[in-house]
């Protein structure tokens, strides 16, 4: 099994593991951000370049460093490879450049975007980006399109990560949408205004890292940070029925799948669960969803201590010790 060192952490991983997945096995701050790679979708990754890392030592046999940063989601590890992510200032500078390129045509309409607060591009630009745009030219403009009666496409916000296309290819029967044209005129589109209409199409919304594909039933209803996310499940014949309800009082504003810490869905959910079941009585509540405390959604969001995994007795002991000394 090849041994790889990422930012000083060494781990042994199975043959053929990508650097990104090796970093995820280590976990923590050293995991490169990823906008297009999605572990549950085959052949995803390699488009956005946010996951670039610096390989300072190719392998045990060939210790030469790689001349340029490489996309960690597409590069497999070699035995004895040494990788730098957050410990390399040049790499962080390069990633900053990538973020700037991703934002070149982005309209930055976060105040009206439903994705704001849970948007990966927002987090990314906050962590790596400049707080100012250097781009003077006109940004790309598109009409808003309804793809089906439940999904809205804002092409201006799209970063062409191809995740939704992979969902259509791999999850939905019969793909009707894809990326048209190429270069800076490339856009997500359906085949001659066809509507995306099948039981799994709603997952496109969840995989979209930005606000390009949004839920029309939730459009402008509320801001994410004013809603209360609750884990809930229901008996569903098509999907696992495990979802997150975004509540405002007793009203179910939105239903989404459960996302892990990398923003990837744990289970695909069907459109019936996502769009039709907007009553609290349709669902069995499990409890509040765990939200990372760095997220704006955690504002006024209360969970039980058990879910937060805080051991009160441990805290008490620490406090007592501090008090005694």
């Amino acid at each position: 099994m090849p041994k790889v060192t990422i930012d000083g952490h060494t781990i042994e991983v199975p043959e053929g593991t990508t650097i990104l997945n090796a970093a995820r096995m280590i976990g923590g701050d050293i995991v490169p951000p990823a906008m297009c790679y999605y572990s549950k979708l085959a052949t995803s990754g390699g488009y956005c370049r946010t996951c670039i890392v610096q390989v300072t030592k190719g392998s045990e046999k060939d210790p030469r460093p790689m001349p340029k940063p490489v996309a960690s989601c597409r590069t497999t590890v070699m035995d004895g490879m040494e990788v730098k992510n957050i410990t390399s200032p040049e790499l962080l500078e390069a990633r900053k450049g990538v973020v700037e390129f991703l934002l070149i045509n982005h309209p930055l309409d976060c105040p009206i975007c439903d994705q704001a607060g849970e948007c990966h591009l927002q987090d990314l630009s906050y962590e790596h980006g400049l707080n100012k745009s250097r781009y003077d030219f006109k940004r790309r403009e598109f009409e808003k399109i309804d793809i089906g009666d439940k999904i809205k496409l804002h092409m201006t916000r799209c970063i062409l990560c191809y995740r939704c296309v992979k969902v259509a290819e791999q999850i939905c029967p019969g793909r009707v949408h894809g990326v048209m044209n190429r270069g800076d005129v490339a856009e997500i589109s359906t085949y001659i205004k066809n509507s995306v209409d099948n039981e799994w199409s709603g997952n496109m919304i969840d995989v979209c890292p930005v606000g390009a594909l949004t839920d029309k039933t939730f459009r402008f209803k509320s801001r994410v940070w004013f809603t209360k996310p609750m884990d809930a499940h229901r008996k569903c014949e098509t999907c696992s029925g495990k979802a997150v309800l975004w509540l405002s009082g007793d009203e179910v504003l939105r239903v989404t799948g459960r996302k892990d810490k990398y923003g990837e869905l744990e289970d695909w959910i069907c459109n019936t669960c996502r769009f039709e079941k907007k009553n609290k009585s349709d669902w069995t509540m499990e409890g509040p969803r765990h939200i990372d405390r760095h997220s704006v959604i955690s504002q006024n969001h209360y969970e039980s201590l058990k879910q937060l995994k805080i051991d009160v007795s441990k805290q008490k002991k620490i406090a007592e010790k501090a008090h005694q000394s």
């Binding site: 976060c110 105040p111 009206i112 704001a116 402008f220 509320s222 801001r223 940070w225 004013f226 704006v296 504002q299």
Partner: peptide, 9 residues
Amino acid sequence: CTACGLCAV
């Protein structure tokens, strides 16, 4: 105003 909710938060 675009009702972005930042004032409220």
